[in-house]
Design a binder for these strands. Structure first.
Lengths: 351, 351
DNA sequence: TTTATTAAGTTAAACGTTTTATCAATTTTA
DNA sequence: TAAAATTGATAAAACGTTTAACTTAATAAA
């Protein structure tokens, strides 16, 4: 990066000169409109100068004087994934309403990027950070990610976690009850679809929320005396989906339903693979996903899934962050928002 | 917004104290690693203190000293529209690579929001702004939007425009040649599809790029001696699409092709409406869109369209902005990136 | 008249960092 | 030995804004 010279902009001094008053007076006019300390004609002259020069106080100088910056960081793993623009919207719309600005940081699922961003955010002395962590590849990355959150907190920056959380909560989080959601979907497949052999697909990276989904599935199956069957799959590049599906749905095991608890994206990939294997969805095989991205309703057949309140997750995280920043104590440290089971055409329903 | 107190963070003074040196020395160690002005043991003590306290210089103080901020603004109309996350990615990935951070501002297609954002960005003294303007409802809004760009420029802030541009260029822009793209699509429908009666749908808001698309369509039609038929439609809520389609494709005019030049989103809506009217696409009616959003390839039938290089538009805008900020003069003020005609299943092809 | 009070402003310090100028101590050169 | 140069560190100013403390002049109260 080439070094850059600061562009000169209009400053309070210019306003004061034009209005023929001291800098202090100009500042008072601008900051305390109700103050009686300035006569009407003087106030008018200052405001005219502000208007004429289009003056806006430099926020860096205000910040130096002790004002907390109205800047927040939002770290997300992948803006191209349909899930995140909606979360981002919820977060940033709410932030704007509350008078904050948002620095968007797209980590591309790399912890190293997140670490770099963290340094930047500390430098900026942002008021708060919302983070939706990268898909950690392994234990070491998970640790680095945790360290990074702790580093932010140790610098006096408020942090909330989005969507993904942890069994060892180092900061508040906002998400849904993944256990309940997974339990609910499994139960629906059993009761509504009449399935007895249901396979669960989860990613190799067993982050905490994925474990929760496994647990929900397992408990639901056991509640109805059915045998849980959990399979780890490549949910990033889908390299082994085809092979696993062939074994499960064409072999002699004859599963009748597939719950891809990792994501809708993955479930849609499963629908594609089913077609290539000559399986009809949902007649031969019911497929369910998780997230309810926009695509879920477009794809053919449309996808039965768990709807996560994406916009609300972003919105709630922002509201939470605002409260943390102004040191209100949170009545509840973690917030689980309601989810919805959405029945579409990729699963059968018994009459 | 409640007033907020600044959180205390570790400062250079703390580092200096811990290392038992002056603030100046600490600063020198941190900023000029190659400098010979500090002895090895001293340097080591300082770096240890930095490490121990996890010190990062406050960027607002650096900014006050004259360093240009590494912050840019990106104003987009609607993050929920699939088009923009991709542009945003291209922009912000490139920005991060060049050492900049990006404030994302989602105007929700409201000029008033854009004006508010502009104030904020001026306050922050950002180095540059990339703006993709709101869909102006009328002439007055268009003017306000232009005024806002001029205001930024007058404050010494570099500005580029994305995707949407103008006949009166007040700043550089990045996009595609909408005239050529529209001409190309129309010509393909004529030559490849053998169509003679092709309807063009454009939005009521005739922004400049929409005019360009009209012009391209018209010229292509006239080149082959065909009659242009341009229809203004509600491309926001699609309230009159159904009615217009009924008239054109079920009436006695018998158009055989529809080019929705406004967007893919609109074209996909047209496909839906065609189905509800009992028209088969593409057998009864060919439909083409504009943008090539992700959905275009998912929808059934998949959509023939013009592919805009979304990621590259963002990336190129960022590179341009970087050059403007460092005062390199641009060899070309405006950049039109290549587009592609993409044939899919929503249009017929003669053998 | 003298003394408070009020009105309408101004001065100057502070915020955290960088950098220029300065200084003291040491080493080199004449 | 004295002068000059070098080394290693520091003091202080500057950046743009806010604000507590202060000033001056006019007015009101005693």
């Amino acid at each position: 990066m080439t070094s850059r010279k600061k562009a000169s902009t209009v400053k309070l001094e210019d306003v004061a000169k034009r209005a023929k008053v001291s800098i202090a007076t100009a500042s008072i006019v601008i900051n305390t409109p109700e103050s009686k300390r300035v006569s009407e004609p003087t106030r008018k002259r200052v405001l005219e100068a502000v208007e004429a020069l289009n003056y806006r106080p430099a926020s860096y100088a205000q910040q130096m004087r002790g004002k907390n910056p109205a800047i927040l960081g939002l770290i997300i793993p992948d803006l191209m994934n349909q899930f995140y623009p909606e979360v981002t919207c919820g977060f940033s719309d709410t932030a704007n309403q509350l008078g904050y600005n948002v620095i968007l940081l797209n980590s591309r699922n790399e912890v190293a990027q997140e670490e770099f961003f963290t340094d930047t955010l500390i430098s900026m002395r942002v008021a708060g950070v919302a983070i939706c962590g990268a898909n950690s590849e392994n234990q070491e990355e998970s640790q680095r990610e945790k360290a990074l959150v702790k580093r932010l907190i140790s610098q006096g920056i408020s942090v909330v976690r989005l969507d993904r959380y942890d069994d060892d909560p180092i900061c508040p989080y906002v998400g849904i009850d993944n256990y309940q959601a997974s339990f609910c979907m499994t139960e629906q497949l059993i009761l509504e679809g009449g399935h007895k052999k249901i396979a669960l697909f989860v990613p190799y990276q067993r982050v905490y929320i994925q474990e929760e989904r496994c647990r929900g599935y397992r408990d639901a199956m056991e509640k109805y005396g059915l045998l849980p069957s959990i399979f780890e799959t490549d949910q990033i590049h889908f390299t082994d989906i085809n092979e696993k599906m062939k074994a499960l749905f064409l072999g002699n095991q004859r599963f009748t339903a597939l719950f891809n608890a990792a994501s809708d994206i993955g479930a849609i990939e499963c629908i594609k693979q089913a077609a290539s294997l000559g399986l009809r969805v949902p007649q031969d095989l019911s497929i369910a996903g998780f997230d309810d991205i926009y695509l879920a309703n477009i794809v053919n057949p449309s996808l039965t899934t768990i709807c996560q309140p994406k916009y609300d997750i972003g919105k709630t995280a922002m509201q939470m962050l605002a409260r943390m920043i102004s040191n209100e104590d949170l009545e509840e440290k973690n917030i689980l928002l309601p989810f919805h089971y959405i029945k579409r055409n990729s699963t059968i329903a018994m009459e």
